[in-house]
Structure formats: structure tokens, C-alpha cells
Nucleic acid binder design. Structure first.
Lengths: 198, 198
DNA sequence: TTATGCTTGTACCGTCTGGTACAGGACTAG
DNA sequence: CTAGTCCTGTACCAGACGGTACAAGCATAA
């Protein structure tokens, strides 16, 4: 009953993740997958219904992974810039992981077939992160504000954009191995101006 | 000889562009394409050799289009920020075009099959644009410089990243119709700090 | 007229795909 | 033992695909 360390369902899911990330969804056939998982096509269909269902399951599992991943530091109100830079450092490290890039690549392919899964991904990856940054900024702003807190969401968005420059898309497109996103962006000086403008 | 307004070759190319943009490359079959172009499969293969060859041709033509497209304004050395903002405004408008988004979407799909074409695209779309921004900054920097011009390429990259925020990826993934990239970024205040830092 | 060259429609090929059917094997419960 | 449940391997299906072959059509050119 407790079986071994891996259930059949999990093995299929893991193998699908591996192949989808490596070769893409369209290029992964059912027989490839069955061989990789050490099982048979019938078992796959018994567990996931269809290939697109499996795709949805892989995406959902992955989204879950990085949604629950960073519990994040406590915001230090006195030096909130440190908190922001700390958050950025973590995000940068996460974005630099090859797995993250491969996932992003697969998502671009999957978006056409499963718009619902794409929306799920964006909600988790972007809105969630942006909201977290907004919280940090909102919490820290009163402690150093020269002006009113206008366009808060936009600030969070711009911060993310600066971290995830166009070298990230190059990596997703396979032109470079790793993006090495500009950590210089993390220097506080570069976003001091945001709080000084109208 | 001069024929009509459109050669057969051009009609196929245009139809391919249309279908690839709309449905994606993989989802476009040879018969679909022949019907759309009002010609036959044999003619397509006579002109482009293979489906992947046609894909390469579409990308090359598209890259050509936006490489030669913006002749761009003359840099006004006295007020180079105006030049930078002007350039950004044009870029923003270009990025906001639905056609540009669809092309970007297709490129993400095509990158796996034609890495060479993806490299071509990135060279034209990113490196080319970044170089242009670098030129503007380099030309204008002496006129207002409080410090030495360090990390020039990185500044260009960050400027582009700020223009092309994560809402752009949302649009490419089909989650929203148009990105409406943050034009607030164009306010000069937001990148004043770049020239003040070490 | 004949000859040439390109385009057309259609039929065809081999291959691969997602998905299903099914006959048996392995195992558990009683 | 029997009955039942799940899994496995394999074979199969119908459809779609990229690509090719070919006979016929049409226009130019002499």
C-alpha cells in the first residue's frame, strides 16, 4: 500500500517534466514518454486522460513548486532597501537557474494549447512576485518617502523588468546558456530616483 | 515578365507570414498554406525547398523589415535626453503593435527548429537596438556627465528592459491583448540616477 | 505549328501521431 | 483455490503530416 518510494503517477509526472523541458511538448511522443517512465501508454492515459491533461498537470505542479518555494525574509522597516535588494537577489538566482529557463521556454510553447495553464503560470510567477515587491515597497516607503506613493504597481513591475532584462529572453530562445542577469541593477542607487519623481 | 503586382513567391511568403503569426508554425500545414496562397504545394516546394526553409525565409524577411524600418532621428547633442526619450517612444510604439507581439510569439516557437534564425532575430532586435541606444548615450554623455561612462552596454540593456516589462511577456503568452508598456518609464527622471552612480 | 518552361491539381507514399483494445501477468483478499 | 484489481506489452486504428510524382494546362517564343 505504502508501496515504494515512487508511485507510478509520480514517475510519469517526473518523466513528462523532464522530456517536456528538454525537447518541448510537441516533440515528446507518448511512446517516448512511456519508455522514459518505464511504464506503458495505457498507464499514462489511465492516470492523466490525455496528453494535454498531462501537460496541465506538469505546469500545475511546477507552478506549485515556485509558489510555495520562497517563504521570504521578514521586512526590516528601518532599512527596507536591504529587504528589496535581498528579494531581488533571490529572484535573480531563481531566474538564473537553467531549470527556470527551460520551464519558461516550455511555457511559451504550451501557452497556445493551454491558455488556462498559461494564465495560472503568469498569476503565480508575475502577479505573485509583483505583489510581494509592492508589499515591501509599501511597507518601507513611509520610512524614507520624500513624496507620495504613486504608481506602486508600476514600480514593482519596473523593478522586475530591470532584473529580467533582454538577456533572459535570449536564454529562453536558446541563444545563450545562462542569462547572468545584471546584478548591478541591485545597487540601490539605480532605483533611488523612483522615489524622488512626482 | 513584370507580371502583376505580386509574384508567386511573394504571395506564398505573405501567406506563410500570416498563418505562422496566427496559428503558429507547427499548426500550419502545407495544404492550409497552399489554399491561403491560392497556389499548390508543388509551387511552394519549388520556391522554398522545405517547410523549415520557408520558416527561415519568413523570419529573415521580418527581421529585414524592422532592421531597415527606423531611420531614426538625428541625435541632438545639446539635449540628448530628448533623443533618448524619442527613441524610447518609437520603440514602445513598435513593441505595442499586435504584429510585433505575434512575431515574438512565433519566434519562441521557431527557435527550437531554427536556432540560426533565432540568433538572426536576436541580433537584429536586441543587439541592434541596444547598440543604437548606446550610441545615443555615448554621444550625449559628455554634455551632462557628472562621472565617467561606465557599463555603457548595461545601461542600454536596462533601458530596454524597463521599456519592455513583464506585461510584454503576458501579451506574448496570450494572457492579455496588448501590453500597454509603461510610458512613465520615458520620463527622464527615472534614469537620471544612472548617470549619478559610480 | 512545335517546343519550352513554369504552374496546377491531384493522387500518392511512408511515417508518425494520439488514443484505444485486449489478452495476459502480478498481486492481494478472502 | 478463486475472484478481482491493477498494470504491462503489443498490436492496432484512423487521421494527419511533409514531401514527391506526374499528367495536364497555359503562355510565351520562334
Amino acid at each position: 500500500m505504502t508501496a515504494e518510494t515512487k508511485s507510478n503517477h509520480d514517475r510519469v509526472l517526473r518523466s513528462a517534466r523532464k522530456l517536456f523541458f528538454e525537447k518541448g511538448f510537441a516533440a515528446t511522443s507518448t511512446v517516448d514518454l512511456a519508455r522514459e517512465a518505464g511504464t506503458s501508454k495505457a498507464t499514462i492515459y489511465a492516470g492523466f486522460g490525455s496528453m494535454e491533461g498531462l501537460l496541465g498537470a506538469v505546469i500545475a505542479a511546477e507552478v506549485d513548486r515556485f509558489t510555495t518555494a520562497p517563504p521570504e525574509e521578514i521586512v526590516d522597516f528601518a532599512s527596507f532597501r536591504k529587504a528589496l535588494v535581498g528579494f531581488g537577489t533571490n529572484l535573480l538566482a531563481f531566474l538564473n537557474e537553467p531549470e527556470t529557463i527551460r520551464f519558461s521556454r516550455m511555457m511559451h510553447e504550451a501557452a497556445r494549447r493551454r491558455p488556462d495553464a498559461a494564465a495560472l503560470y503568469l498569476e503565480a510567477a508575475y502577479d505573485g512576485t509583483a505583489r510581494r515587491i509592492e508589499e515591501i515597497i509599501a511597507a518601507g516607503l513611509p520610512h524614507c518617502a520624500p513624496g507620495p506613493a504613486v504608481a506602486l504597481p508600476d514600480r514593482a513591475e519596473r523593478y522586475m523588468a530591470m532584473l529580467k532584462g533582454h538577456r533572459y529572453e535570449m536564454a529562453v530562445l536558446g541563444a545563450i546558456e545562462r542569462p547572468y542577469l545584471h546584478p548591478q541593477t541591485l545597487s540601490t542607487a539605480s532605483f533611488d530616483a523612483w522615489f524622488a519623481e512626482a
